[in-house]
Design a protein around this nucleic acid. Sequence first.
RNA 1: GUGGCCGUAGCUCAGUUGGCUAGAGCGCCGGGUUGUGAUCCCGGAGGUCGGGGGUUCGAAACCCCUCGGUCACCCCA
Length: 439
Amino acid sequence: MSGERSTSARDVFRAPKGTHDILPPASRRFSGFVDAFSGRADQFGYGLVVTPIFEHLEVFLRVGESTDVVTKEMYEFDDKGGRRLALRPEGTASVVRAFVEHRPTEPWKVWYSAPNFRYERPQKGRYRQHWQVGAEVIGSPDPDLDIEVIDLATGFFAALGLSRVRLKLNSMGDAESRAAYIGRLRAFLEPHVSTLGDDFGRMLANNPLRILDSKDPAVIDVVERAPQLPEHLSAEASAHFEQVQEGLQALGIPFELDPRLVRGFDYYTGTTFEFAAESLDAAQDAIGGGGRYDGLAAEMGGPAVSGIGFGIGIERALLACDAEGVFAVPAAPLDVFVIDRRIDVAGTAAAVILHELRVEGLTAEKAYGGRSEKAQWKLAARHEARFTVVLDSSAAELIVRERSTGEEHTVPRELVVGWLYERASGSAIPSGGLQGRRP
RNA sequence: GUGGCCGUAGCUCAGUUGGCUAGAGCGCCGGGUUGUGAUCCCGGAGGUCGGGGGUUCGAAACCCCUCGGUCACCCCA
């Protein structure tokens, strides 16, 4: 059999497996999330970086050739020019590639909001296309930056209203201490291969650190007695890690040391961290994570500089917000709704008022398609319009109803835009606005 | 990729051992009442019962395949 599937029209004209559409009004929450992150990143001095959603395959191979994300889950394809490309499975590699390519001034502090793609079996909080916001700093090993990015993320969660997010912290050590530790770990675990099976043996050969993260009770039992990562750091790596912890304490950011925290990408060195939402099931409770990466830029042909960053999964973080009942983003009330009472009269009067209001920056809406007056009032209510303007057959004067007070005013047509602007914004239209320009 | 559970209207669901024209609430549309938009009342639209095949006189229901969701594993955001 070929790998091709036959798909009916019904199957094809829907979002592909593991993907989802984000529609209004729910999308308001999505954009609000990104806006909140953008605002905080801006405050911390991070600029937006936008990279392609696909890169040359090699960019992502740097994520780690023994990781599932790269070996099993990547969307790889050849383009018509024969290039080997892949859809971005995670955020950091692309950003480091952009750094290497453009060589901006260091430290380079950037944030992003972008979709990632992984071919895996979907579940709740786990999608083939999921969105992340994240931040990266490339070009400085300063532990203050470890502290800064963690502060950025922690405060962001707090700004969303999340209170049940745990910060787990670990250090992978620098290249030397990491290699030395892997040697010790391997020596310790080797004798257990016979009892723990082939998968264990394979993992031990390919990526022994990942064994530390195992959920298999039998493996955990062994791992608990294994040498621990933080006890085998070089003096330098240890001092760096100490300083990060002191900094977090000084900022009042609670964290817990997790010596078995090993993140899924190979490039991490030194500080690693993960944010776990206590309100979510363990399967999707990792709502963000990151760490320091010393060798990544050099591996892409750039300078041997260190970087640090994190990614936060938007869908999962929003699930956590749901679970905690926070971060509702209600629709902003409309300033003005225009009701056209002259449904039997063809004309542009309502459209013209709408236009003039919008020119002045007010939010304004009307009904479409010759709806009944009652239906129009209902729509105005649904929009929570602060003011409703009723357009009658006498075009010279309009009735304006103020929702909060229930008061009705009769306002001459030529003054109504200015009148509404003043009431809605609390000040007069600057520079006279549209007055007198009415057709 | 492996295994379990699930799939009926836009949404949440009911539908008895297989048997009338497949229902309800919410939402949507129209109308009525009302101190113009709440409440309340009346009416309407909307369904290839996820899709295909099979069993049967008869399938939303039973069987097989498939697509999708969900849970566990794996992995991760």
